[in-house]
Design a protein around this nucleic acid. Structure first.
Lengths: 209, 209
DNA sequence: CGCCGCATCCCTCTTTCGAGGGAACAGACA
DNA sequence: TGTCTGTTCCCTCGAAAGAGGGATGCGGCG
């Protein structure tokens, strides 16, 4: 990419209004140009591969294929892809997963142009861009152990209000095992009751309702 | 308001990007003009009273005074105020409260210009504007009894993971009473376990995490 | 005035939770 | 190879939850 050329941007957000705002904001800078817009994850992947933009600006919460799945797919097909995540804050889990999947930067939807435009330029240049407060929160996050797949599965059923016995039946394991998973969950999340485990997990973005 | 004059609009949303999108969208229609922008509830009230716009376009989720509180205050000081709520869907409780507080219309943030501009015109003309699917959901909602103030208070503590005994101590009532409230909560929400009560209440917007 | 909803209190009873142990086996990893 | 983690199973036991009753004041509303 030559310095003289404009930075070509792909937008992906399911809200038309947000896309409009981004277009207005980005076009206020003559060095930047929006070359494509997607309204869901699948479209984002497709348009990325077709246009090969310098930066992809992705929301994580989208219908169809989630933002994170889209990031993984794009990076799989195009390992050099430069992706900047733009989303409303909703727990650290999503952010962490997005960065793990290969996103280079992260900005909050509450950002103004003064925050967003430098982030776009930085990511277009291949640099990382993480706001300081987000970076520190992610560092703190590592204090919590990650839940295993099975534990998350159990937690999801707990959130739905099922008793241990019902969960046991549904997952085809004994009630004892369900209790053991619950013990692990409570320990890892540093909580003492199943209800608290659910709210803590929702707040951290581990499960959704 | 004369028909020949432009419809004067107040925007209130905490996301700069969303405000930009709305401005771009609204200015694409020569009959509409944004006369003021607020980024929180208090500012929305202040700017409404100063500019007396024909329509106020408010988000419900805002820092400081909530969108609903802002609606109430505006309607208290100016009963003719025409307010259109624009928000991401997050349970029916907020929508219901907003309409009760005096909002004339409601549109989802996922709307396109084709949905939003007619809504603005309708509300500016003093007409109600509720999408059909929202209206039917609100009608269904009445099948659920409303929780009393005390019950919501108890439910909030349950969500935080407190045991009945702890809740009793915190609210200065006996554990028996807590259980009685819980019984009412379970009955009204049509659920059978405290954990399920929490998730159901969160989904309906009765409590937040 | 009586009725109803709310909040408060009390009881018993069975089931479920959650903490405390121990143990087996598979796969990953050094 | 040994070790570690995840998953599964097992046990006991006290505390908590939830269903079932009944009862008292207090306020609003017809």
């Amino acid at each position: 990419m030559s310095r003289a050329e404009r930075i070509r941007i792909l937008l992906a957000d399911d809200h038309f209004i947000v896309r409009s705002g981004l277009v207005a904001l980005i076009h206020s800078d003559p060095d930047l140009a929006v070359v494509a817009q997607a309204s869901d994850g699948d479209q984002a992947v497709e348009l990325f591969l077709r246009h090969r933009p310098d930066v992809a600006l992705l929301d994580l919460r989208m219908p169809g294929r989630s933002g994170n799945a889209a990031i993984e797919e794009i990076r799989r097909q195009c390992p050099d892809a430069r992706i900047l995540v733009l989303t409303a804050y909703s727990g650290d889990e999503d952010i962490h997963k997005a960065l793990e999947a290969g996103a280079l930067g992260y900005v909050l939807k509450s950002s103004t142009g003064d925050d967003l435009l430098p982030a776009i330029r930085a990511v277009a240049a291949g640099q990382r861009w993480i706001p300081r407060d987000v970076a520190t929160r992610l560092a703190m996050r590592s204090a919590y152990e990650e839940l295993s797949h099975r534990e998350i599965e159990v937690l999801r059923e707990i959130a739905r209000g099922l008793a241990n016995k019902e969960i046991a039946h549904k997952l085809a394991i004994t009630e004892h095992t369900v209790k053991d998973h619950l013990k692990s969950i409570l320990g890892k999340l540093h909580v003492s009751a199943r209800t608290e485990a659910v709210t803590a997990a929702v707040q951290r973005g581990i499960i959704e309702l």
